[in-house]
Design a protein around this nucleic acid. Structure first.
Length: 289
DNA sequence: ATGAATACCTGAGAGC
DNA sequence: TGCTCTCAGGTATTCA
């Protein structure tokens, strides 16, 4: 389940292995991965073929390749990508066997291929005109906690104007981006804070602590995930070392809380699960606490 | 403004 | 073995 750290690993991989190369051919194996390119797959192919990748950028869980017309040229447009639940990018030799669920293949000028595979097709790609700096399609996505221009004071102001549960708020990509279900639960456990705590009544120091832990969890995951891809293989899946070793709340139902030993609970929440320690993260009873 | 519901998807695993 | 059901969940959209 790619969240911000996994997407950043992919961005680094593309920066290392794809930037500087021209896309000579685009093959769309499954049009559903281009659902968000409204002009259709043929238009996508037409617009992407011949373009040179001059940079790789990211905001939250969105990733885009900045594309220009020449290797040294200025990029104005972008190929916008989202990994969804199961998206992967791989850089392979052309004769390497295709991965399962290959959806789009971009041939590079040296014969290698940048391959987009996605089992569940929640992710996808689109061409973004004038999107090099920030694709207009994602103008509503807030800066993420690893962005140097992320403004903690503005975040604090905005979250306290909300009247909703704190987990709902940090999953809202227009308030803070890059946070998914897993890192939300981990950060809330660390503070600790129950997921239903009312944003309106959070104390300043609780918001500060939450933000600190969200950033820490992501930086730690990035440090581990960043070591797991080799020179020719850019890959993201839900099984980075971080998931195996370091989760203290997510997926830990019934296991003792590492702080207090109380069994971790699981609640249904927003069509997914929330994992929390009933002792460290007591459920608020009136919304105020 | 907020949130709830829904659609989009596949495959692993459980239960029968 | 094979069927059906549940679950995993990020985002856009629509409705209350």
């Amino acid at each position: 389940m790619p969240e911000l750290p996994e997407v950043e690993v992919v961005r680094l991989g593309i920066a290392d292995h794809v930037v500087g190369h021209t896309i000579t051919r685009v093959v769309v194996h499954d049009v559903r991965s281009l659902r968000r390119h409204l002009a259709g797959p043929a238009d996508f192919v037409h617009r992407v073929e011949g373009r040179t990748v001059v940079g790789a950028a990211r905001r939250g869980k969105y990733l885009w390749m900045q594309v220009g017309d020449w290797t040294e040229g200025e990029a104005s447009d972008a190929v916008l990508c989202h990994l969804g639940m199961s998206g992967q990018f791989l850089v392979s030799e052309a004769d390497a066997p295709p991965p399962r669920h290959l959806r789009v293949a971009l041939t590079l000028d040296d014969g290698r291929e940048l391959r987009f595979a996605d089992q569940r097709i929640f992710g996808g790609m689109s061409f973004s005109e004038d999107g090099a700096e920030l694709p207009p399609e994602i103008a509503h996505i807030a800066r993420d906690p690893l962005d140097p221009l992320f403004d903690p004071a503005e975040f604090a102001t905005r979250i306290r104007k909300r009247q909703t549960g704190v987990k709902r708020a940090i999953l809202d990509q227009t308030l803070i981006s890059g946070v998914g279900n897993i890192y939300a639960d981990e950060a809330l456990w660390r503070v600790p804070l129950h997921y239903a705590r009312n944003t309106r009544h959070l104390r300043a120091r609780e918001i500060e602590s939450l933000l600190g832990h969200v950033g820490d969890v992501m930086r730690e995951a990035l440090a581990q995930g960043g070591t797991s891809f080799d020179a020719l293989y850019v890959n993201v899946n839900g099984n980075s070392g971080y998931f195996d070793r370091s989760l203290q709340a997510y997926g830990q139902e019934g296991r003792p809380c590492e702080r207090c030993g109380t069994p971790i609970r699981r609640d249904a929440f927003m069509n997914r699960s929330s994992f929390w320690c009933p002792h460290c993260q007591p459920r608020p009873r009136n919304g105020k606490f």
